[in-house]
């Protein structure tokens, strides 16, 4: 037998339905006037408001005789591309969190200026990734932090979780840039910025300045992330060794197999390594050689060696190095 609703229930029900109709009408009205530009932060919104004469904390790093040219700007992952356009992807893939930047000039010279960029990358590892993948060849190492160099017009370094760039509009400002760098480092004490993987590369034939961390898409393979690489020169041939410490041995093995399959799918073919180490895979692809192996949790290998012998020489050296590290622990 049906139960008739009470009058109060009916009224409440009607009120809810009326409210829903009003909400739906509101949504329809708003949607009909939707403009994505309204949902794009304006420049003034993503900049930290800075009152005239107010000191930014970056300004405190300046040597004497330098003053702000423009206000402090702050960018988040959502609007980093408003500052560095297409290069934003590089930072975002490496874990970028925040950028603060500001331009400064000599107080008596308007056209003598530089810009300071402080990228908060969330960790030393992430900061090293963007530092190392952009490292300029032929640059001069600087005794500022473990990872620091300068070029004719710029200074680049990693300090803790920050990747810092000081870029001048002219040559000849090396001292001023270094002064800013030193002030930055002194005012912000950090833990050691040593990355353990760096010490796993064999020293022989190594170009120590070439060690880089590829945060993602290493060697064109989308699953190959967090890969350290280092350049070697063996008998006049340049090639790269690579290694990556994975969460588990099984993960390393799985990734090695996936990378191996990727190479074969893209025109590579297996080559007999001639070693008695079955875990070593040697692949010839486009007249170059790739070598892959797994040692414990470490996926390692050689990338783009010009000859089989060179690939094997570097690959076996790396293999033995990892064995020695294991035995010493």
């Amino acid at each position: 037998m049906a139960v008739q609703p009470e009058k109060t229930e009916t009224l409440v029900g009607m009120a809810i339905l009326a409210l829903l109709v009003v909400i739906a009408a509101g949504i329809l009205m708003r949607q009909s006037r939707y403009d994505p530009q309204w949902f794009t932060m304006s420049r003034s919104e993503h900049e930290i408001p800075q009152a005239a004469g107010e000191l930014s904390h970056l300004q405190e790093l300046l040597p004497d005789g330098w003053v702000p040219l423009t206000p402090l700007e702050t960018f988040s992952p959502e609007n980093l591309s408003d500052k560095i356009n297409g290069k934003a992807e590089l930072y975002l893939a490496a874990g970028f969190q925040k950028l603060e930047s500001q331009r400064f000039k000599r107080s008596d010279q308007d056209d003598s200026w530089l810009e300071l960029f402080v990228f908060d990358m969330g960790s030393t590892r992430n900061a090293f990734a963007v530092f190392s993948t952009q490292r300029r060849t032929g640059s001069t190492p600087v005794d500022l932090t473990r990872h620091a160099y300068q070029t004719e017009n710029a200074l680049f370094f990693v300090h803790g979780r920050d990747y810092v760039e000081v870029i001048a509009a002219e040559e000849g400002l090396a001292d001023e840039m270094l002064a800013i760098g030193r002030n930055f480092v002194e005012r912000k004490p950090v833990q050691s910025d040593e990355l353990s993987e760096q010490s796993l590369f064999p020293r022989k034939n190594l170009n120590a300045e070439s060690i880089a961390l590829l945060a993602s898409d290493a060697f064109g393979f989308s699953r190959l992330n967090n890969i350290f690489t280092a350049k070697y020169n063996i008998a006049g041939q340049e090639m790269r060794a690579f290694l990556s410490v994975r969460p588990s041995g099984a993960d390393a093995q799985q990734l090695a197999e996936a990378y191996h399959a990727f190479l074969l799918e893209n025109g590579g073919s297996d080559v007999d390594s001639g070693t008695n180490l079955p875990e070593i895979k040697l692949i010839e692809i486009f007249d170059l050689y790739e070598l892959i192996f797994v040692h414990g949790r470490v996926l390692a290998g050689v990338h783009e060696a010009e000859s089989k012998d060179a690939a094997l020489e570097l690959g076996l050296t790396l293999y033995r190095e990892l064995q020695e590290v294991d035995e010493s622990q």
């Binding site: 297409g86 290069k87 870029i167």
Partner: peptide
């Protein structure tokens, strides 16, 4: 040649 589109260093 490198680090585009912003560059930053004359060595780019």
């Amino acid at each position: 040649m490198t680090n585009g589109p912003t560059g930053g260093s004359l060595s780019d």
